[in-house]
Design a protein around this nucleic acid. Structure first.
Length: 373
DNA sequence: TCTGGGGTCCTAGGACCC
DNA sequence: TCTGGGGTCCTAGGACCC
């Protein structure tokens, strides 16, 4: 006796992708009445007149119309809009709003995977592919948090995210890709709209005469493997067809923790470099302790005036979460690899090979000590 | 247009081992 | 003496994401 075949909508799992619109600016607007209606170009960034190496985090529509966009140097933004209002980023504030948003999402889904400060992928199996419940969620976010989100609903996270981008032009800011329609949805989009295709890959694809996702999907696998390697070639083919078998996870597993800083003016001053390294080691150690993790590897990052950037790392004998240990290792790497007197633009500290503190305690029970025997 | 800061993943090449 | 063929681990750099 066979079970009746499940309908497509029962078989397919549904993923709702949530992406906050202009998140940092929206939060600032909530905190500063009048900001949303201010006609001036507004740029979330340190003021380039006091922080010459600042870059634009985000900008309002008036600023965008003048050509200002994310990641642009703030000095350039000032040149484009001499009357622009520069608002320094307030990351703690954005994190507080992010936590409230994620809490609300968790109250509305059995599984929430946070992908960045303002994005999350939600298990949406309970609701299927009708837009109604997503529209209702969007209204709840607006009412309870005060921000606008764009929503993409699809059978897998990759297509759901791409649908959330498309939703930014849709009236309700919700876009649904029904199961089976994935390939047709992605086909007309430019290759750059695929996650993982950045400027470099886009240029290489264009060199092969591939401009759209559909054109990519039409190429034989062998050609993609030859041009892009096993891993990325295979990914490109699957993604170009709207295929993605990744699963959602609510638990974040940290692989590395880092802190870095670009100086306002390049420096070769040992005191300044040492102070910065020490404060970064303390910051990284504090985060390790907060996450109850130990690090088995310490790395430094140096960027010279030429923008030449190097990273150097070392393994630790014993995993640690102590600022002193991290500082010592970072200083040893500095002594070994920095050419004294050579001015530095950026310095950074990173820890890796992270493991839970509890796992390390377990392991040491079975580790033979040098005194033993 | 002179290029932030926080991450993840992949790859090439060398060391080392059998 | 011109020279193998795996496998694994590690390092450094780079592409990419927000």
């Amino acid at each position: 006796m066979r079970e009746p075949a499940p309908s497509v909508s029962e078989l397919a799992t549904a993923c709702l992708y949530v992406d906050a619109d202009r998140f940092f600016f929206s939060v600032e607007a909530l905190e500063r009445p009048g900001l949303a209606d201010d006609p001036r170009p507004i740029v979330i960034s340190h003021d380039p007149r006091t922080a010459p190496r600042a870059v634009v985090t985000t900008a309002n529509d008036a600023a965008r119309q003048l050509g200002i966009g994310s990641a642009m140097s703030s000095a350039t933004a000032l040149r484009l809009a001499p009357n622009a209002l520069f608002l320094p980023p307030r990351h703690e504030l954005y994190h507080r709003y992010s936590e409230r948003l994620m809490a609300l999402l968790r109250a509305n889904s059995s599984l929430v995977q946070q992908n960045s400060i303002d994005e999350a992928a939600l298990r949406w199996d309970e609701h299927g592919f009708e837009p109604g419940p997503a529209i209702a969620l969007r209204a709840r976010v607006r009412d309870q948090i005060g921000i606008s989100v764009s929503l993409g609903l699809a059978a897998n996270p990759l297509v759901a995210k791409m649908a959330s981008e498309r939703a930014k032009g849709a009236p309700e800011r919700v876009f649904v890709v029904r199961p089976g329609e994935e390939a047709a949805f992605v086909a007309p989009l430019p290759v750059r709209s695929l996650i993982g295709v950045g400027p470099k890959a886009e240029a290489r694809l264009r060199g092969l005469g591939i401009e759209t996702v559909g054109a990519l999907a039409a190429r034989p696998l062998a050609e993609l493997l030859g041009a892009f390697g096993q891993s990325y070639g295979r990914y490109l083919q699957r993604a170009s067809r709207g295929e993605d078998d990744s699963t959602l996870s609510a638990e974040r597993v940290w692989k590395s923790i880092s802190a870095e800083r670009t100086f306002g003016v390049d420096t070769a001053d040992r005191r300044a470099l040492w102070d910065e390294l020490r404060s970064q080691a303390a910051e990284v150690a504090g985060r390790l302790q907060g996450e109850e993790l130990l690090a088995g590897e310490v790395a430094i990052k140096l960027r010279y005036a030429s923008f030449e950037t190097l990273t150097r790392q070392m393994r630790l004998q014993v995993p640690t979460d102590a600022a002193g240990d991290i500082e010592l290792a970072a200083a040893a790497l500095m002594r070994r690899y920095w050419e004294p007197g050579r001015p530095i633009r950026l310095i950074g500290v990173r820890v890796g090979r992270l493991e839970p503190r509890s796992a390390a305690a377990q392991l040491s029970l079975f580790e033979p000590t040098s005194e033993a025997g």
